[in-house]
Amino acid sequence: MISDIRLRLSAALCCSLLGACSGASVSTTDGVSVDLWAEVTQSAQADGSVPRAETGPKHVTTSEGIRITLDSAYLVLWQLALKSDCSGSNFAPAPWWLGWISNAYAHVESTPWQSGIPQIIDITSAEGTTQWLDTLNPTPGHYCGASVQIKAADDDANGLDTAPHMEGYSVYLQGSYLQDGQNTPFTVASSKTLFPAERLFPAALIIDSEHKSGAVSFALHYDRWFDGVDLRLLAQGDIPDSLLTNIVNSISATAD
C-alpha cells in the first residue's frame, strides 16, 4: 500500500517536473463573431432590380431630374454598433429624419457591440460588392438593429492610405451637376458629426451557442443623396444640411 503510494507520488513528481520544463499549451474555441460590412449601392427600381455601376465616377439623377456626376466621394463611418434594444424613437425600419450634431471630435471606444474604428468608404467603388469593416464579439442574444454614425476621420482611420485628404472630414464630394444645359462643378467637404443612423433589421440577428456567427451589412444608397437639395450651395462650396440628412437617411442595415 505504502510503496504504491510512494510510486504514485514519484510519478506525479516526474510529471510536474516535465511540465515545468515545457512551455504553456494553449488552445482556443471561437466565440461569437459578427462581421460588419458596407456596400455602396443604388435604390431598387420599380421592377425590383438594382442597377450596378462599376468602379469609377457615379451618375445619378435627382428627384428633380438633375443629372449628377460624382467623380470622387467619400464617407466616414463610425460607431458601427449592434442594438438589442430598438425601442428608441430614432429607430426606424426606414430612414425618416436626421441632421448634424456638431464638428466635435471624440474618440470612440471599441466594445463587444461596437466598432470604434473609423472607416473611410469610397463611394466610387464597384457596386454589388461588400467591404469588410470590422468584426464584433458580442454576447449571445437577439439583436434587433444597428446604428452607425458619420463623423470626421481621425489619424488612425481605415482607408487613409488611399484617401489621406479625408483626415478631419466626414463627407467629401467632388463632381458636377447638369442643370439647364450647364455643367457646374463642385468640391465640398464637411467635418460635421451627424446624428446616428439607427436601423431596425428586417429580421433580427439571433446569436447563441448554436449560431455563433453573423453578419451585418450597411448599405449606402448614394443615388438619393441629392434629392431636394439646393445644388447652388454646392457650387458655392457649401454642403446643405438637407444633403447631410439625405446621406444619413440613405443608410440601411440588414443582418444574416
Binding site: 510536474s16 515545457s22 504553456a24 494553449v26 482556443t28 474555441t29 461569437v32 463587444p112 449571445p140
Partner: peptide
C-alpha cells in the same frame, strides 16, 4: 477563460 462572446482560451502549463 470564457469571455462574453463565448470565446474560450485554455492554457495548461507548470
Amino acid at each position: 477563460l470564457t469571455d462574453q462572446s463565448l470565446r474560450t482560451l485554455r492554457t495548461r502549463a507548470a
